[in-house]
Amino acid sequence: MRLRTDIFVSALMRRVFARGDFAAVEEKGAEEAGAVFVRQVFRDGSETLYAPAPQSFFDAEESGQRLFETRLSGVDAAAVSAAIDRERRFDSDLWVVTVETDDLGDLIDFGAAEPKDDGFFRR
């Protein structure tokens, strides 16, 4: 059984604050089953957007785990906002959590191995 979205977001925020970083809920969606997008803001002003990974490809539904994939990496804020606006056209119940940190560490789980830093992806 999957954890309610509002509880997942609350736990994510507490973990971010416990590390000494900052997080804010930018958009609040459906409390029970809204999709969560994580907007990572770096010190240089660039951003990375993490979106829900296709859950049908993983056993996440059985374990209740939320998995993410990198949608955009190291882009400007306008590009991330535009991507979120496009997603909102399909799902008006989505959540957007902004996290200001240079390293996500173990804050979220990824559906597949995240790419190494090869100059294109930034973590």
Results as ranks from 00 to 15, higher is better:
29 G>V: 00
69 E>Q: 15
30 A>Q: 12
60 A>T: 07
86 R>H: 07
107 L>Q: 06
97 V>T: 04
48 T>R: 01
61 E>R: 15
31 E>G: 13
29 G>F: 00
49 L>E: 04
108 I>N: 09
84 I>A: 05
61 E>W: 10
108 I>V: 07
31 E>S: 14
110 F>G: 09
93 D>T: 10
28 K>L: 01
102 D>N: 13
108 I>C: 05
110 F>S: 12
113 A>F: 11
102 D>A: 09
84 I>Q: 11
74 G>L: 03
98 T>Q: 13
56 S>C: 12
112 A>C: 05
68 F>G: 03
32 E>F: 05
107 L>C: 02
56 S>P: 02
29 G>Y: 01
53 A>F: 11
62 E>R: 15
74 G>N: 15
71 R>G: 04
88 R>A: 11
74 G>V: 01
102 D>R: 07
54 P>R: 13
72 L>Y: 06
74 G>K: 13
80 V>R: 06
92 S>E: 14
32 E>P: 01
55 Q>E: 12
57 F>Y: 11
94 L>I: 05
65 Q>W: 04
66 R>E: 10
32 E>D: 12
75 V>Q: 07
55 Q>H: 11
106 D>F: 10
38 V>P: 02
81 S>R: 12
80 V>Y: 02
97 V>P: 11
51 A>H: 01
96 V>Q: 12
91 D>Y: 04
27 E>F: 03
43 R>L: 08
76 D>P: 02
90 F>C: 00
100 E>P: 01
91 D>I: 02
84 I>E: 12
43 R>Y: 04
90 F>V: 00
82 A>D: 14
109 D>E: 15
26 E>R: 14
101 T>E: 14
96 V>G: 10
